[in-house]
Every structure is written in C-alpha cells, then in structure tokens.
C-alpha cells in the first residue's frame, strides 16, 4: 500500500518536473529578456525535478528491498513439494464419503498403517453404521484386550474389548514409539488430514510420491527416505504401499494408488466424521436464508414503491414581465 502510494507520488513528481522543464524550454524567444538568467533558472528546475524523481524512485526501491520481497524462512526443499490437487469426490459440497472406499481404507489402515500409527480418537462404536456392522465391530473389538477397573484387591485385569473402547495404539507411549522407529514419532492419524497443509492431497502425494531412488544431488541422511512432498525431503517412513499388498474383499484391484486413495478417504472420515451433518446443515441454511433474502427484497420494494414512483413537480410562480410595466407606445402617433 505504502509502496504503491510512494510510486504514485514519484510518478506525479516526475510529471511535474517534465512540465516545468518543457514550460521553460518553450517560452517564446520573442520576449527578449536576459537569456543567462533564464538558462540558470531552467537548469535549477531540471535539477530539482530530476533530484526529486531520483529520490522518490530510490526510496521506493529501498522500501521494496526492505519489505517487498518474499520472505522464506526455509528453502523450497525444506518447504516440501506442493501436492497435486486431486478432484476428491467426497469433498464436493453435496457429496458424502464413498462408504465402500471407507471400508477398504480401514482395511488398509489395519493391515499397513496400524503397525506404527495409532488412531486413538476412533472408538469401535463409531465404525458401526459407517464402515462395518455391529457384529463385525464387536468381533473386531474382542480381538484386543483392555484394562478393567481395579477389582476388590486393587489389581487391574484384562478383558476383551467392547464397542465403547478406542482402537488400540501400536506402542505404549510416544517414547516407546520413538525408540522403535529410530527416534522418529509416527503421528497419530485420527486428525491427520486436518493437521497437515494440503490435507488429502498431501497425504495421497506423500504415500504415492516415493521415487525409485533419490535424485542426483539429494542428500538423504542415514535412516531416512527421500520423499519430495515431505518438508525437508527426508522422511523416516519408508514407502509402504506396493501393488497387491492387501486383498480387498470387494474385488477392487489393490494398486498402490487405489490403496492410497482409499486410506486417505478413510483418514478424512476419521478426522471429520460429522461431515455429512455439516454439509446437510449448510444446505438447509442456504435454502432458508435464500427464501428470507427474497422476502426481504420483496418487502423493501413494497415499502419503497410509493417513494420511488412519486413525482416532484416544481411550478414556478407566475412572474410578470418587466416589459408589461413600461408605458405602451401610443398607437395613434
């Protein structure tokens, strides 16, 4: 803003200087005043104008040098490659998740991701009616053991899981996870699509973006893998999705991009299980407010109709012409 206004003043100052010089230059020679004095004043005007222009341009350049340029705290490699934007069907304003894909994605999570990543905010009960039936969810819950309440002597025993339990984490705590993964903490995936810039696009690109080998010149530290989409390009997670890694029950071919797409949709569901309600409510709000808006437009026009259609007429008072007051010439003479 300031830079722009400074630029404008510079331009107008330059224009003013140009006018001044041209005015002195085109002064007609016929007015034979002292030419030496005139030359001196012309030189002064030119110098003043040029000086002002140089000062204005210089201050704008200095300001731009200080504040105008992009400020990047990191190099592009440290920022990570921007993910491709994919046309996710479930992100349209009126579309829900493809629940068949959610089911496939949950399978991918369980068979691939769950060995390192927890999904600790998802209870078994929220899978019911979205991804699996009650019986399937109960059977899945009972595969894991959970702590009971302390019994009479204060011991905590183990019991099979119930629908109200949350999905078990692969590690006891973050320290155990770091120790098992070379110091890197696998993040919890419950809210991961909300927690990363680029959301679904980023996770899909990350999962499918591992090159066969790092490009020439890329420095990959020991124990890390190269992925251009990961900020810093060195990621502790190796490529996990290979074709036909899992077998889908619905016969979908398990290519690595298919698995990545399914698991991303599933993770989007786990981050936003309320998405359907949110979208429905949004459409209802739009419908109701558009009716109310139309009503208010109608009321406004109704109330304003007499004001808009009235006609203001000015009828000037009758004025006698001054000629009428003059004595009429006598017709006879």
């Amino acid at each position: 803003m300031l830079a722009r206004s400074a630029l404008r003043t510079a331009r107008s100052a330059g224009a003013a200087a140009r006018n001044a010089t041209s005015r002195t230059a085109t002064r007609p020679a016929s007015t034979s005043s002292s030419t030496a004095e005139e030359a001196a004043s012309a030189w002064k005007t030119t110098a003043l104008g040029s000086g002002a222009t140089v000062f204005a341009v210089g201050s704008v350049a200095w300001y731009y040098h200080l504040y105008g340029r992009n400020v990047d705290a990191m190099t592009p490699a440290e920022e990570g490659l921007h993910p491709t934007q994919y046309p996710w069907e479930h992100q349209k304003w009126f579309k829900t998740f493809d629940h068949q894909a959610l089911r496939r994605g949950f399978l991918v999570y369980r068979e691939v991701c769950a060995s390192c990543h927890s999904l600790s905010r998802i209870p078994y009960r929220s899978l019911v009616g979205n991804i699996m039936t009650v019986d399937e969810a109960k059977a899945l819950a009972e595969e894991n053991e959970y702590d009971t309440e302390p019994n009479d002597v204060g011991d905590i025993e183990k019991r099979p899981g119930k629908l109200s339990d949350y999905l078990p984490a692969p590690y006891k705590n973050d320290e155990a996870a770091r120790a098992a993964n070379n110091g890197a903490l696998p993040p919890d995936l419950s809210l991961i699509t909300k927690a990363r810039h680029g959301g679904c696009d980023y996770i899909f690109s990350l999962l499918t973006g591992y090159p066969e080998e790092p490009p020439a010149g890329a420095v990959v530290p020991e124990g890390l893998n190269f992925n251009p989409y990961f900020p810093g390009t060195g990621i502790a997670m190796a490529r996990v999705l290979y074709d036909d890694l899992v077998e889908y029950e619905d016969g979908t071919k398990a290519t690595s991009s298919q698995m990545a797409k399914d698991v991303v949709e599933f993770l989007n569901w786990s981050a936003e299980p309320e998405m359907d309600e949110r979208k429905k409510m949004g459409w209802k709000v739009l419908a109701v407010t558009s009716v109310l808006f139309a009503l208010s437009v109608w009321v406004k026009r109704y109330k304003w109709a007499p004001i808009k259609t009235r006609k203001i007429v000015y009828s000037p008072p009758k004025q006698k012409s001054i000629l009428d007051q003059l004595p009429k010439p006598d017709k006879k003479s």
């Binding site: 009126f94 579309k95 829900t96 998740f97 493809d98 629940h99 068949q100 089911r103 009616g129 979205n130 991804i131 359907d276 429905k280 459409w283 209802k284 419908a287």
Partner: peptide
C-alpha cells in the same frame, strides 16, 4: 432435504452397501 441428499449420494452411503 434428506431425500434429496440420499438421491445425490445414491450408492455411496452405508445404508446402500
């Protein structure tokens, strides 16, 4: 509105599969 939603999302929801 629920009926419209279901019509738009036919085959995608859990109740459809």
């Amino acid at each position: 509105s629920d009926r419209i939603w279901d019509a738009i999302n036919k085959g995608r929801q859990w109740k459809d599969i």
